[in-house]
């Protein structure tokens, strides 16, 4: 077994174990941290496929930003485990159906003979830049799909922010522009005065 094989099986087993951990962890914060571990080891697997841009972007975006905000929210929620488990058996058939469907899809795609030869990475020279290649493709061949995806994300972002904008009356708030404009002279008056009692030197 070469070093790459050892690394692959190591990363793959950690990913699977972390994925199981996400599902079975009782504490939601632990589940989120398992998900972080799963992302990191998945990035390791992508790195082995020489997809360095995707691997680092996974760590940068999902681990460095998305999961931080996720943890942020999960930590602040007061989650009652008993309440969460109440409808477990009622929803179990539906969940099992979804899981079965996903397993079937993956077997169908990964196991078919047509995709078998695509699954091996193309060997590149040392000066090959994965990032440059991706950028070139995104901004030439796929420029319209890329731009449309970007616009959809922008619309979603604007909509999400608009949902939180509720004008309520009687709310106290600070006028930051006015605060920033304040000068030292508006608030502070320096008075110079001689000391009242001279220190007597006896």
């Amino acid at each position: 077994m070469s070093f790459v094989d050892v690394a692959f099986y190591l990363f793959a087993s950690i990913t699977v174990m972390a994925g199981v951990g996400v599902v079975i962890a009782r504490n939601p914060v632990h589940a989120a941290l398992y998900l972080v571990l799963a992302f990191c080891s998945a990035a390791g697997i992508w790195m082995l496929l020489e997809a360095e841009f995707l691997a680092i972007a996974l760590v940068l975006v999902y681990v460095g930003a998305v999961m931080v905000l996720f943890l942020f929210v999960v930590m602040m929620l007061d989650i009652n485990l008993l309440q969460l488990r109440e409808g477990f058996w009622r929803w179990f058939p539906f969940g099992a159906l979804l899981a079965g469907l996903m397993v079937f899809e993956m077997i169908w795609v990964l196991g078919s003979t047509q995709t078998a030869d695509v699954a091996t990475a193309v060997v590149h020279g040392a000066d090959y830049s994965n990032t440059k290649e991706l950028g070139r493709l995104l901004y030439t061949d796929y420029v319209y799909p890329f731009e449309i995806a970007a616009v959809i994300l922008l619309v979603a972002m604007v909509a999400a922010i608009a949902l939180t904008l509720r004008r309520r009356s009687g709310v106290k708030s600070q006028n930051v522009a006015e605060q920033v404009k304040a000068k030292k002279a508006d608030r502070l008056r320096i008075v110079k005065m001689p000391s009242e009692n001279k220190v007597s030197s006896k």
Partner: peptide, 25 residues
């Protein structure tokens, strides 16, 4: 001497926040 050095640095510095979050929690 990696080609994606800048991205690597960004990814690594963004991981540092986990220590702070985990410590606080």
């Amino acid at each position: 001497n990696v080609n994606a050095g800048l991205l690597y640095v960004l990814a690594m510095t963004s991981l540092g926040v986990y220590g702070v979050i985990i410590a606080g929690w």
